[in-house]
């Protein structure tokens, strides 16, 4: 098979599968925030990548502080919390100043948030410089597992995976097992009725948007463990994460997970056998073609239109 022995193919499968899994975790983390904002509220947030970068830069900044005060081994937990809080606050502000005026014009939110993303990119560039920066990683994140001689699994990938799992569970419990989530779902399903039974829908909108941004911040912080951070890094992932959300079916958490998994695995396996760009082209093409045949995505919520 392609000039490899069966043993090698097996190892390649494991390693590519794993790199697919860590891509899956990154995509899932990014898409979760977007699935809340786009799937639940119908707002196209083109600045989502930049909210991710808010988290990433927070983590980098915290790591600089940690080096100064010699807390490198424990700062990362705080970095994730700080990234969430900062991105949440900025998201809250953005919703208040910008998004809430545009709910009736979804295509215009797209343009306005694109403008916002430009402003944020330039802010990063002016304050942190145009060069890519990376966080000081604690020692327990470096290195790799070696179950057999040929298989090599990096620990930071495992960490991102665990984090993705935790955040996904958190989103699940918030959306489906808490009063807050109930309010969000009620507002999405029927805004007028929700407000008639006493839900403050404007406040729900603001918190939902801010929560989505906060999760983007967490994913950005996680992102620093596997890659360096530049002002435009976020914009590289924006189309991918939109594809994940749309492909999975906009309002479905399961769909988002499944499509992030499918896209990440397809991409990393195809990228091994073709060139990296052709693998990406093939994956995206497949998604676009499937979406053309099934516009509602993989896991459509059953609603009458």
């Amino acid at each position: 098979m392609f000039g490899y022995t069966m043993d090698e193919v097996g190892n390649i499968m494991v390693m590519q599968g794993f790199s697919g899994l860590s891509l899956f975790s990154v995509l899932l983390l990014m898409a979760l925030g977007l699935a809340i904002i786009f799937g639940q509220m119908g707002v196209i947030n083109m600045a989502h990548g930049e909210f991710m970068m808010v988290g990433a830069y927070t983590a980098v900044f915290m790591s600089k502080l940690a080096v100064k005060y010699e807390m490198v081994n424990s700062y990362f937990v705080f970095a994730i919390i700080a990234a969430f809080i900062l991105a949440f606050l900025i998201g809250y502000l953005v919703e208040y100043l910008l998004i809430r005026h545009l709910y009736k014009r979804p295509l215009d939110t797209l343009l306005a948030t694109w403008g916002l993303s430009l402003v944020m990119q330039q802010t990063f560039r002016s304050s942190f410089g145009a060069k890519e920066v990376s966080a000081e990683l604690p020692e327990w994140l470096l290195g790799s597992f070696k179950p057999t001689a040929d298989i090599d699994i990096p620990i930071n990938g495992v960490f991102v995976m665990v984090l993705a799992l935790v955040v996904t569970l958190g989103v699940y419990f918030f959306m489906f097992r808490s009063r807050g989530g109930l309010r969000v779902r009620a507002t999405v399903q029927n805004r007028v009725m929700a407000s008639a039974v006493g839900i403050n829908t404007q406040k729900v909108d603001r918190l939902t948007f801010a929560l989505g941004c906060g999760i983007a911040g967490v994913s950005g912080a996680a992102f620093t463990t596997i890659s360096s951070t530049g002002p435009t890094t976020g914009s590289l992932y924006i189309v991918d994460s939109f594809m994940v959300v749309v492909f999975g079916g906009a309002a479905s958490l399961m769909g988002t997970i499944a499509s992030a998994f499918g896209i990440a695995q397809a991409q990393s396996i195809l990228q091994f056998f073709m060139t990296s760009s052709m693998g990406k082209v093939a994956t995206l093409m497949t998604i676009v073609i499937i979406l053309m045949m099934r516009p509602e995505g993989l896991f459509a919520s059953k609603v009458r239109r």
């Binding site: 910008l98 545009l102 215009d108 343009l111 306005a112 694109w114 403008g115 916002l116 993303s117 430009l118 402003v119 944020m120 990119q121 330039q122 560039r125």
Partner: peptide, 12 residues
């Protein structure tokens, strides 16, 4: 970029 971004937002 600030200006361009601001312009997008203001126009919309």
């Amino acid at each position: 970029l600030f200006l361009m971004g601001g312009l997008f937002i203001a126009v919309v």
